[in-house]
């Protein structure tokens, strides 16, 4: 369905945006020792009741009105489980939702992480009122981007200005490469 994990992330975050989250935290952790790539997406949106939550992983459930099936969550679940990994989703009505997918790093069924910079820039540039935290780590190395910190530095200069986007793209690419130690995951 998707060719990259970063497209799944873009899609799952779309649910957080629809749930009117104001803060969305995306974590990508790669651990070569345990041979896992873990993705966690946490939001402070409207959340779900236990009943809604159990339906969210069911491809025939959606609260969207234009089409009968919800695909995003079931696809992400299938993509991680296909590698021999695991999938969890937890939610509390009024508090928020957390999605966690563990991929087996060395599995031939694991799609590449893909372009996280494109995913993050798309999200940050078109949702100026939402804050994003991105944590990326490979074994002992890590870096974090927090748009609350960026916006504080920027003052009344909007985060989606071209000059800022160019800088953020380079910032994400350079730090990702450094944390990855030159490897592509």
């Amino acid at each position: 369905m998707f060719s990259e994990i970063s497209l799944h992330i873009l899609d799952i975050v779309q649910n957080s945006i629809s749930a009117r989250a104001s803060l969305i935290e995306i974590t990508v952790n790669i651990d070569n020792t345990s041979d896992t790539l873990t993705v966690i997406i946490k939001d402070n949106g409207s959340g779900m009741t236990d009943d809604e939550l159990s339906k969210a992983v069911d491809p025939f459930y959606t609260t969207r009105t234009t089409r009968k099936n919800g695909f995003g969550v079931p696809f992400f679940k299938a993509a991680s489980e296909m590698t021999g990994g695991s999938f969890e989703i937890s939610s509390e009505k009024g508090k928020g939702t957390a999605v966690k997918a563990v991929f087996v790093l060395s599995s031939i069924d694991r799609m590449p992480l893909g372009n996280m910079t494109d995913t993050l820039i798309s999200l940050i540039d078109t949702n100026c009122r939402i804050d994003f935290i991105y944590n990326y780590s490979v074994d002992e190395r890590s870096f974090t981007l927090d748009t609350r910190q960026l916006k504080k530095t920027l003052g009344n200069v909007p985060i989606d200005l071209p000059e800022v986007t160019v800088f953020l793209t380079r910032y994400l690419d350079d730090n990702t490469a450094e944390v990855s130690g030159g490897r592509k995951y």
Binding site: L10, Q14, I121, D125, T126
Partner: peptide
């Protein structure tokens, strides 16, 4: 406005969104 539902992303909405943002930035 670029539609970014699951179906949109699967059909290739991310490069379209990027093409618009980049194009508009490049052309000032």
């Amino acid at each position: 406005v670029v539609g970014m539902a699951t179906c949109g992303i699967a059909a290739g909405a991310r490069p379209v969104l990027k093409a618009f943002s980049d194009g508009i930035q490049e052309k000032g």
